[in-house]
């Protein structure tokens, strides 16, 4: 079972690496290098220039990370279905859930490697220019990876819908909602409509709350993350990923293939 899952995972990862990742990296490197000169305008205050490059660089990584998650997640399984290669795989003596788990882990690995490479590029360039290494780099990387892992898993689940537009729309909507979950809940509470409050509560527990993972800036500026907090975050992300995995396996099982 595990060998089959590992095989599919590795194949998915290589497939993604062959087609999309390097181009995205190249674009990111170009932007990152451009950034270092772009903020030369503020070079008279090195701390300001540093924070601008750092903040904008991290924002670009977040944006690229989301786009990568969106494109990888929406194409890996979908391409197999479209090209009908999935039928060949389904004839093999393996469960659909194994196929989905392999694909799931493969896309997760691709997203994780992507984000790590981008973070590495930014950190390296910051070190070259300012001679500073982020003190909480490991925590920044961890929380970003958790965020993108959930995003990728979510997109992969939505890619099982028949339309690519539906997949994109749902993914973007969930990411937006996940970032605004607290505000939406508060607004619904203030509106004082019981049904709306209930519906919002249900959505609040269903949609991953990305806002709680987006603490990279706090880590870099004034937050010392305790290992127990990191464990809670990993626990929540793990549980949510498990939910996405089960939901995806169930959806693939029910799909008429």
């Amino acid at each position: 079972m595990f060998s089959r899952i590992r095989l599919i995972m590795w194949d998915t990862f290589l497939d993604v690496a062959r087609h999309k990742m390097l181009v995205v990296h190249l674009v990111f490197v170009c932007i990152a290098i451009g950034l270092f000169n772009l903020f030369g305008h503020f070079s008279t205050t090195p701390s300001l220039e540093y924070r601008m490059i750092q903040d904008v660089g991290l924002s670009i990584i977040s944006l690229f990370g989301f786009l990568i998650a969106l494109f990888i997640g929406s194409t890996t399984l979908r391409d197999d279905i479209q090209r009908k290669t999935i039928y060949a795989i389904l004839t093999l003596p393996m469960g659909r859930w194994e196929l989905y788990t392999g694909k799931f882990l493969g896309t997760l690995l691709a997203a994780v490697v992507n984000v790590l490479i981008m973070l590495g590029i930014l950190t390296g360039l910051l070190y070259i220019k300012f001679g500073i290494i982020w003190a909480g780099f490991q925590w920044v990387a961890l929380f970003m990876l958790l965020e993108f892992a959930i995003m990728t898993g979510m997109v992969l689940l939505f890619s099982l819908t028949n339309s690519l537009i539906v997949c994109f729309s749902l993914s973007i909507f969930c990411v937006l909602l996940g970032n605004m979950a607290e505000h939406v809940k508060h607004l619904a509470f203030e509106a004082d409509i019981p049904l709306l409050s209930f519906a919002t509560d249900v959505v609040y527990w269903l949609v991953p709350n990305f806002g709680y993972f987006n603490i990279k800036y706090k880590i870099l500026k004034d937050l010392a993350v305790s290992p127990s907090f990191a464990m809670w975050a990993i626990g929540y992300a793990g549980c949510y990923l498990f939910f996405l995995l089960v939901a995806g396996s169930w959806a693939l099982n029910k799909k008429d293939l």
Partner: peptide, 18 residues
């Protein structure tokens, strides 16, 4: 699936508290 959903909701509750 329901079990996973409940598990994720519970873990979210504890994580948000933390």
């Amino acid at each position: 699936l329901f079990a996973a959903l409940i598990l994720s909701a519970v873990s979210q509750h504890f994580y948000v508290g933390q």
